[in-house]
Computed example of a mutant assay.
Amino acid sequence: MEGKLSIATLENQHRDIFIRAVTNVLSSQIAEVTYAQIVDGLPLSDTAFDVYRSCVCVGHPLLDEHQELCPGVIEHARELGANFDAGALEMDSRLVHDYQSASPGSRGFNTRLIELVARAVHEIAVWLYKQDTNRHKDDAFGLWRPPQDEVRFFPHTFPSTLLCHAWYRDHDQYPEGIADCVGYWAEARIFGGVVLFDRRDPETPDAVYLHPDRRDVIYRIYRLLDDQKHKLLQFMLCDTTPAECPLPLLPSDNNRHRVDPEEAIETTGIYRDRWERRLRPLKSGDARIKDVIDTWNYLSFEDWRDATRRGRRARRERKAKERGLG
């Protein structure tokens, strides 16, 4: 694991900009309701429905009945947040060093600031989850279990938590285990997707990607447009509490640079940490391989056709490799 450095080691200007950016993100309504759900212990019913594919399957009582947070949860979340010292966060030492070395306002500075803030949002969610404030451990919601033959339809973070992103549930390899699953869920809810970067292409070191998990939103990883990135930075860098909040950022047809999440991160080069997402098992299928043309996730016939070919090729190669290992 990479070494860590405290945000407190940053020089004043860089540290102040970081604290301001985190504070502005936390001031958003989407951040408040997201963190409050962690304190509450369960997603609200409308949040549970707001996913690309169902995480909470039909039959769970929260879908119909958990429409409001428990009394006092938002206030408790605010109190906990007030006790969290963002300046004491420890981040990857190379990232902290590169951020400190960059001139404020430069492209490299801005991209590293976004990464630091994304990591902070994630770490705050991890910290909140570890406070063990779940209000539903012993009530009908928390004690409910599906019939044995339906357990497979629930994520393998269940029953520990249902606060998880569809593609970021590999808790057995996460430094903070289940808590990191909650962290990925929180940053995806707040930013509009898990925040990723191009770790491979030296020509696009400042590209920022989001990996969403929302209803009526593509499941593919997409690159932020310059104006989307500008709006995010403008919001984070505002000296006063911003009046307009661009969060969560959601893709449109203009976001034409898209990446298949089915591909290994070593192949795409789009990730934040190497351990964040492993390849899906072959038995889980590949959304790229289907007979119906998907012009929602894929912007043209050619885009869909090329993705289908990538999916079939990857599947053949993995099957051949498994046979060879057998």
Score class of each variant (00 low, 15 high):
V73R: 00
L26A: 11
V22I: 07
P71L: 02
I190Y: 05
L232E: 03
D149N: 12
A166W: 02
I17P: 00
C245K: 00
S106E: 12
K231C: 07
G3Q: 00
K283L: 04
A320T: 14
P104L: 08
V96G: 00
G59M: 06
L162A: 04
H60E: 10
D85C: 06
P147G: 14
L250T: 12
A77E: 12
K4F: 09
D139T: 07
V182W: 01
I221R: 00
V39W: 04
K137F: 09
L232Y: 05
A21Y: 08
L113P: 01
G326M: 11
C55S: 12
R215P: 01
D227C: 02
N12R: 03
V151C: 05
I190H: 02
A31H: 03
H230I: 14
G285L: 08
S160W: 11
A120R: 04
E322Y: 09
V194E: 06
K290T: 14
C70M: 12
Y35N: 05
W304M: 03
W275A: 08
D64I: 13
R15T: 14
C164N: 06
A102L: 07
A102I: 14
L44P: 11
C181Y: 09
Y219E: 07
Y184I: 03
L163M: 11
V182R: 02
I178T: 12
I178S: 04
L143V: 14
A314P: 02
P261M: 06
Q100A: 03
I218L: 04
E2F: 04
L95Y: 11
H230M: 15
K319D: 09
D180W: 07
R214E: 07
L196K: 01
A21D: 01
H97N: 04
N297K: 08
W167N: 10
P159I: 12
P281C: 08
E123K: 08
R315H: 01
T111D: 08
I114R: 00
Y222P: 02
L163D: 02
G324D: 10
R309V: 15
G41S: 05
E187W: 08
L210V: 14
L26R: 03
T308D: 05
D170Q: 06
V58Q: 08
E150W: 04
Q67C: 03
S284R: 10
F235C: 03
R318C: 11
T47V: 14
Q131T: 01
P251M: 15
T47S: 06
R312S: 08
S6F: 00
E302T: 12
V25N: 01
R189S: 04
E176Y: 12
Q228C: 00
R323F: 08
D98R: 01
R214P: 09
P246G: 15
R215K: 03
R312G: 05
A86T: 14
P212M: 10
T9H: 00
H66V: 12
R189I: 07
Q148S: 13
N297G: 14
G311V: 13
Y184L: 00
